[in-house]
Design a protein around this nucleic acid. Structure first.
Lengths: 144, 144
DNA sequence: TGTATTTCGGATAGTTTTATCCTATTTATA
DNA sequence: TATAAATAGGATAAAACTATCCGAAATACA
């Protein structure tokens, strides 16, 4: 469903949010360890998220990544997915037709639209705060 | 959502079904043209579908691909997707966790399960006959 | 100021997916 | 039987995705 890059990006963002909530900045190394992702690859993804203004980075000693406390609840999964995977999930026909709409639908257009709208809805309404809180309270997990 | 291979496989199967409905066998060349897919790559995918007993092939002059008329309505999209992409869509965690279930869920487990169940439901209930009939009546299209 | 720490960014490598090419094999028909 | 038409299948190439490496730049702190 999501690319590996996107999976890592989402998990990393949750972990950063969780720590930023307590005013703690986290390093790449700590992130990669906590979300079980390859460090160098994760670095690339975080750079991407920084460029898209979803997370902040601080270089140098005691540097690391963080998220503006006030932003945590307004960052939706959608923003992360768009930053990393682009519009792929949103646009485009389920069967790869160049133009696929009500007037010229592919064979599964209607059925596919329903499912994608569900995914869209989910990504647009799920924010980092709720996901981070679930981790904090031990309801959900970032690895294993 | 689906791999290219899967997209081509579904469209090809619909086109074959459409023709088998009228007792017409179709060639690889005709299929690739009608579904706008690369010929050689499509050949590999069709071989796969033949091996999985979803479509039949006939070698030699006047050969081609066909589907048992009686099977057209019982072949679900699920069968095609499974043959080509395997269990990928069904199994596995949305965020790539090795174990992700009710007891040890990833942060998006519940939300993800809902969406995947929708997809699953769609693939399990959609059969080749209805899709082929929509093409036949000009309601939907296989290319462009 | 020097050093350790840490992100940034370019280059490169490995893996999977997508796509092509060529030969072998099978079959209908003249 | 010879020939043309098709699929089968192995080898290979191209592209995309995943992953690693290393030097540069920035920063805190002794």
């Amino acid at each position: 469903m999501f690319s590996k890059a996107c999976e890592y990006g989402i998990k990393a963002s949750i972990f950063i949010a969780l720590n930023s909530y307590h005013g703690k900045r986290v390093s790449l190394k700590a992130i990669a360890k906590e979300v079980a992702s390859p460090e160098a690859f994760t670095a690339k993804i975080l750079q991407d998220l920084v460029r898209h203004d979803i997370i902040n980075s601080v270089k140098g000693a005691h540097g690391g990544f963080e998220i503006e406390k006030n932003d945590i609840s307004s960052i939706k999964l959608e923003h992360i997915v768009r930053a990393i995977d682009g519009d792929k999930i949103y646009s485009g026909c389920g069967l790869g037709l160049q133009t696929c709409d009500e007037n010229h639908p592919c064979p599964v257009h209607d059925k596919f639209v329903d499912i994608r709208n569900g995914l869209k809805q989910m990504l647009e309404t799920t924010n980092l705060e709720e996901l981070a809180l679930d981790i904090k309270s031990g309801i959900s997990f970032l690895k294993t």
